[in-house]
Every structure is written in C-alpha cells, then in structure tokens.
Design a protein around this nucleic acid. Sequence first.
DNA 1: AGGGAATGGTTGACGCTTCAGTCATCTTCC
DNA 2: GGAAGATGACTGAAGCGTCAACCATTCCCT
Lengths: 153, 153
Amino acid sequence: MTEAPRWLTPVEERAWRGILRMHDLLVQQAGRSLQSRFGLSAADYTVLAELTRAPDDRLRMGDLAQVLGWEKSRLSHHLARMVKRGIVTREDCADDRRGAYVVVTEAGCAAMRAAAPRHVEDVRRLFLDHLTPAQTALLAEITDTVIEKIDPQ
Amino acid sequence: MTEAPRWLTPVEERAWRGILRMHDLLVQQAGRSLQSRFGLSAADYTVLAELTRAPDDRLRMGDLAQVLGWEKSRLSHHLARMVKRGIVTREDCADDRRGAYVVVTEAGCAAMRAAAPRHVEDVRRLFLDHLTPAQTALLAEITDTVIEKIDPQ
DNA sequence: AGGGAATGGTTGACGCTTCAGTCATCTTCC
DNA sequence: GGAAGATGACTGAAGCGTCAACCATTCCCT
C-alpha cells in the first residue's frame, strides 16, 4: 500500500489550473493578433525577438535554442520554414565548420519593427493592465523563483 | 506618425516572459513524466480529469470543449485518437440525434487512478513547493482576475 | 407545414512539435 | 597521427493544433 496522495487544496488548484488557463488564453489571443496583422506566429515573434536583441542580429543555432528553451530539432524545423519565407537566413560559421548562424533578413527586421509595438500593446491590454504594480512585481518574483528551481539549464 | 510605444519596464518584462517560460517548463516536465510513466499526454490527462469529475464519467462534446477551453475540432481530433487507444468511447445522445457523449472506459479510469496521485506530486514538486501560501493565494487571485477579463466565455 | 438559420459535431489540409536516427566536424587522449 | 567519443546541426515519420468547409439535425418564424 502506498501513501495517500495529498490532493490539491482549493486555492492550490485555482493557482495551478489558473496558470494553465491564463497562459493558454494569453498566448492564443496575442498569437492570433500577431498572425492576422503581421503574418507572424507567436513562435516566429519570439525567435525574431531573440535574434534582434543579439549583437549583429545573429546567433548560433545552439545558442538560440538555449535562450528559447527549445529542442534543437524543433528550432531546425522552424527555421527551415522561416528561411523559406525569407525572414531569416542561415550563414556558415567561420570558426566551426559544423556550425551555422541564423541571421535576421531585412524583411525580418521590417516585420519586427511593424509587429513589436502592437504586440507590446496587446500584452498590456490582455495582461499587464489587469495587474497592480505590486502584483506584477510579485509575479516576476514568483516566476523567477520557479524557473530557477526547475530549469535544467 | 503614430504614438511612441510604451515598451515594457524591466519588471513587466520579467513578469511576462516569466509566465511564458515558467508555463513551458512546467508543462514540459509534468507532461514528460505523465507520458513516460503512464502513456498519457498532458492533454489526455486534462480530458480524463474533466470527464471523471463529471457525473457518470461522461460529457457532451460541446460541454467538454467548453470546460477545456478547446476548439471543437481540436477536441474531435484528439478524441478520435483517444478512442483508438481505448481510453474513451463515444455514445450517441438520446435527446439530440446530432449530439454525442464522450465516456471514460474502464481502461481510462484505471489509467487515471494510476496517474493522478503521481501527477499531483509532480505539480507540488515542480511548482507549489516553491511558493509560500501567500504567493499561492496571490497567484490564484491574479489568474482568476486575468482569466475573467479576457476569457471570451 | 416548411424554409432558413442556428447548433452539434466531423473532416481534410496544412503547419507545428517531438522522437529517434543520422551525418559531419571537432576534441581528447594514447 | 589516429581512433573514440563529444558536439552542432539536419531529417523523416508520426502525433498534435488550427482553419475552413462540411453534413446532419433541430429551432424558429411566418
């Protein structure tokens, strides 16, 4: 016979299910907005955001997968589609012949310049506007803690 | 010329990116655990959880889609796979010939009985254990608020 | 009664994600 | 120098999610 499980208390369940549900609603609605207005999926946006914040608008595949928290194969597939649409390109790496850089194209930059302000507005409208500054700070605290505890790096 | 966008402050960015990242890590790790130990995906688990909490272990397609917050077509596809694996079945609805019930099979019940306690443990270990009771309560508050504001119903 | 709209649900196509396997290159160590 | 293993990245197959279109039944209104 094993231990009786400690089921979630009502407030714990609200917090857990709340995170799942809130996240889905936010991503779904912000994503639809990006897609319909700028032809970018949420994933595209995240990739471009990481690339444009990197020096020289480029990153190695592995580093990009790292900051995104994506599996390398997922990134590889996704970039293949983005390359086909002309918003990023691959470039060979000089020091390591196995390696490859991902670089934002001019079209990619333009898409980001158009999308970013609207996306930030969406994030405010959907999410931040409903929180007090104290709640925002607390959320930052909480997520940092949890991520630090469970991120495999 | 349009308004200058109000970019996110550092703490706002930590909260926003934190939600995205924390959610992905939690779902990924809890999901892998469910999958490897019980052959259930996170989605399977959620579906079974809603069904087993319903009277008579059954729900109409539409009602299930509603509580899950899923699109009907997604649910239809997903259930087709679950039916094929024998963990749920469809049953015709007496009062409305268009309608269909989804019912948990004995195999589905067994899978849930095995998986639920371990899943709850995972949720505690990955998530709740890193929060103080006050933080948990605040998170429940925050998610309820945001969901209530942006859920299209 | 009966025709149009609304509702409940399914399907097909296409893009996304994961898993496992592969190839090429680089590093380490003898 | 050369073999063994590590690393960087790609690929194919299969399951997942979304969108648009669809069919069947029921509701509503005259």
